[in-house]
Design a binder for these strands. Structure first.
Length: 756
DNA sequence: ATTGGCACTTAGTATCGGTGAA
DNA sequence: TTCACCGATACTAAGTGCCAAT
């Protein structure tokens, strides 16, 4: 990376990033009312000279302020952002459209798929082979994304498959664990895992040929409260109708949570609760503050206590039942392979809790019934049966999508899906492809950087904005920042949706020139706070973008994610804003590992190095977590252990010393041996102490940083696998079981010389 | 050109459950 | 054997990005 892109220096040790979030929230709360109008403002700007009669005058005042022309002489009037976007930028750098390649052309041609004939019905057998996308990254003539080629291939493939109905000879996949008693640990899982990454992929946009599953598991029906658990309104006992009671229990279960005290939450809840009441209840219950849920709350607490103190047998029984459900509903057959489903349970009803300051918190998330559910599977599969007496909303046979079940959720009106586990072929291929795209970016990132630096000087505002935004996305790993619908979600932003109020410019700060201070809420309302020295030209551009704007105006008023991504697409096939995050995360890991790994270290020290590299990425991507509730305590415990170990070490040393002295005098075998023993003890204690100290460092540094997200979503697993091989660290130290399943492809294929 | 719908990835947190220390 | 702790897993919200309709 060129010097300018050493992202993290400014972030890694800025302890100031993780400020008290409450303080922070308050700050945002204060601004809330301003944000409210923000979107409206935009609309108003579009139709600015008409139709403003219902706005209040103070708003209007700043809105309609005349905006001066740009310094650089371009004639854009800030306001008609939407016009202006002529297509003259088509041929930005004159480069022809980049070839398509997806990097799947790796030379693993061998294919001996194991086959679960255990699970699939013979009549459904199809070819196991899928055609490999032949656009190899390195040397193949690249395929252009055209339908012709695709359909040609499609035709070819179909033919092949038709001829190939008979399955290839299979290696038996002994699902031995089922057969023999599960007690034994010796049991390998399936002896051979299916190596989907050694097979061809579909090239026609279809996601599967065959899909069979059992449908979703519904939430258990509501069980009315026993009669002795009472609800009181205004001090008087009141028996609620079942529907109203159910919703009341949702609230009562949350009583200990802070958010049941929030006004919006209470308001939303009460409104939705009333909808579930009988008209009689509705007329009586008019004030939430007069509702007393305490008995219900106590009842549920007691229930959960009871659950905890169940007998071992009962617990085992429940466990067995869960296992049975998992076995029945937790898997599907997709293209001859049994695959694990990620979330086969339909979300139970409850009260919606969005993250951050969510306008819909407390609303009732309604119960999903079979009539709400769409099933997706193969026509020729065993179609899942709806529960007795019910019907599915629809059964469809769409192999262009990957989901098995979907329903529409009532809070945002968005669609929810049941899909496969990350270890599945369908997710794995996509994941692999993602990293290949990021690796392609590596090859042309310098060109792209040169380009956007050049664009900082453009005489067109929209191009400058695009170039500065891209610089942020690249340097700071910001998210793209799609527009969001006002009032539907918490007020959060990403790069393209940054507002003037989210950054402040400092000509000079802490001895550095041209510092930009970012402070905004990003995805999940996680605060992004960072002070970054930028190049002078960027700084000047930002001044220009912010000129004559109100705090709640868009920083990049001529840019959105769609424009940006269209541009990126022209720079590299498959390039979008999020690829920069993947790329920068992975390249940072690789660089950090190269830099700080030491072959001489002990395994724990190596792992600390790895975690530190991982941490650098997490910081870059701003992956935070609330410090665990037990953090202080667990830190103290660890410290106590360290102290004890030190004590023990001191003691061991003293003993060694006296043993030595003793041996010097006595000069016999026995005392010599004693010295050796003591030496060993000292050594062991030293090692243990070191290990503990390393652990403490690691934990301390991790206090509010979450490593999991980057590990799971941004770091090319092959980098980690290669590192493990190079430094002789067992892969289990880096990836737990789930992670090893997800990254099986990488573990199988990456050698120690893999370079991202 | 904008909008809304859709599909899919990315995200933090709540809860589970296995394990090692007491 | 019990219990506290902590990593693993479950859960579901909140993003991105693309496409087709307007």
């Amino acid at each position: 990376m060129s010097g300018d892109h050493s992202h993290n220096d400014s972030q890694i040790d800025s302890g100031s990033r993780y400020n008290d979030s409450h303080k922070h929230k308050d700050k945002y709360k204060d601004k809330e009312h301003k944000h409210k109008d923000h979107k409206k403002d935009k609309e108003r700007e579009k139709s600015k000279y008409s139709n403003s009669e219902h706005r209040d005058s103070s708003e209007k005042k700043h809105r309609d302020k005349e905006r001066p022309k740009l310094k650089d002489g371009s004639s854009d009037k800030q306001k008609d952002k939407n016009r202006e976007k002529k297509k003259e930028e088509r041929s930005l750098d004159g480069k022809p459209k980049k070839e398509k390649e997806n990097g799947f052309g790796s030379p693993y041609i061998k294919s001996e798929p194991e086959n679960d004939d255990f699970y699939h019905s013979p009549k459904h057998e199809k070819s196991l082979k899928r055609e490999r996308d032949d656009d190899d990254a390195e040397f193949k003539p690249k395929k252009i994304k055209t339908e012709d080629i695709k359909s040609e291939k499609k035709a070819k493939k179909r033919k092949q498959e038709d001829e190939d109905i008979k399955p290839k000879k299979k290696t038996k996949d002994k699902k031995a664990e089922v057969a023999t008693d599960g007690k034994k640990k010796a049991k390998k899982e399936p002896e051979e895992k299916w190596k989907w990454w050694e097979e061809e992929r579909y090239t026609d946009g279809s996601k599967w040929r065959f899909l069979e599953h059992k449908g979703p598991v519904f939430a258990p029906p509501y069980e009315p409260l026993p009669n002795n658990v009472k609800f009181y309104y205004d001090g008087k006992h009141m028996k609620l109708s079942p529907d109203a009671e159910e919703v009341a229990t949702f609230f009562s279960k949350m009583l200990d949570h802070e958010y049941t005290t929030k006004e919006i939450f209470r308001k939303n809840f009460f409104k939705d609760w009333r909808k579930e009441m009988t008209s009689e209840e509705k007329s009586k219950i008019t004030d939430l503050n007069k509702c007393d849920f305490i008995e219900m709350s106590e009842y549920f607490k007691a229930q959960s206590e009871a659950r905890k103190s169940m007998t071992k047998e009962d617990k085992l029984k429940i466990k067995a039942e869960n296992e049975r459900i998992l076995q029945e509903y937790g898997f599907c057959v997709m293209d001859n392979h049994k695959e694990r489903i990620a979330n086969f349970r339909i979300e139970p009803p409850g009260l919606f809790r969005g993250r951050g300051d969510h306008p819909k918190m407390g609303m009732l998330k309604r119960r999903i019934r079979p009539e709400d559910v769409i099933i997706n599977c193969s026509k020729d599969s065993k179609i899942p049966k709806p529960p007795p007496g019910t019907k599915w909303k629809e059964v469809r046979y769409d192999n262009k999508v990957t989901w098995l079940v979907s329903w529409t959720e009532n809070i945002q009106g968005s669609i929810k899906y049941i899909m496969l586990n990350p270890s599945s072929r369908i997710k794995g291929e996509k994941d692999w492809q993602k990293y290949e795209t990021a690796r392609r970016l590596k090859k042309c990132v310098e060109r792209i950087r040169a380009q956007y630096r050049e664009d900082w000087k453009s005489k067109e505002m929209r191009i400058r904005q695009r170039a500065v935004a891209l610089y942020f996305i690249d340097k700071l790993a910001l998210r793209a920042g799609n527009e969001k619908e006002e009032g539907e979600t918490a007020d959060t932003v990403g790069c393209c949706s940054l507002r003037v109020e989210h950054l402040s410019l400092h000509q000079e700060m802490d001895g550095l020139e041209f510092v930009v201070e970012f402070d905004f809420l990003g995805k999940d309302s996680i605060r992004y706070y960072n002070k970054v020295p930028v190049e002078k030209r960027v700084f000047k551009n930002l001044q220009l973008f912010m000129e004559d704007k109100e705090p709640e105006d868009d920083l990049f008023d001529r840019l959105n994610t769609s424009i940006l991504n269209k541009h990126l697409q022209e720079l590299m096939d498959g390039l979008t804003a999020k690829v920069f995050r993947t790329y920068n995360a992975s390249i940072t890991l690789q660089q950090q590992l190269d830099e700080i790994s030491n072959g001489e270290d002990t395994i724990p020290a190596k792992i600390l190095s790895y975690n530190r590299a991982n941490r650098a990425v997490a910081i870059l991507c701003n992956h935070q977590r609330a410090p665990p509730k037990t953090f202080e305590k667990s830190m103290q415990n660890l410290q106590a252990k360290i102290d004890a170990k030190k004590e023990q070490l001191g003691e061991a040393k003293r003993e060694l010393k006296s043993a030595k002295a003793d041996a010097k005098v006595r000069r016999d075998e026995k005392s010599k041996k004693a010295v050796e023993t003591k030496k060993k003890a000292v050594q062991r204690a030293e090692e243990q102490l070191m290990k503990l100290e390393v652990q403490a460092t690691d934990r301390e540094e991790n206090k509010q940083i979450a490593l999991g997200t980057s590990k799971l979503n941004y770091l090319d697993p092959r980098i980690s696998v290669a590192w493990c091989k190079k430094y002789d660290v067992p892969i289990e130290k880096i990836y737990n079981k789930t992670q090893r399943e997800k990254f099986a492809w990488a573990i199988d294929m990456a050698e120690k010389d893999f370079a991202f």
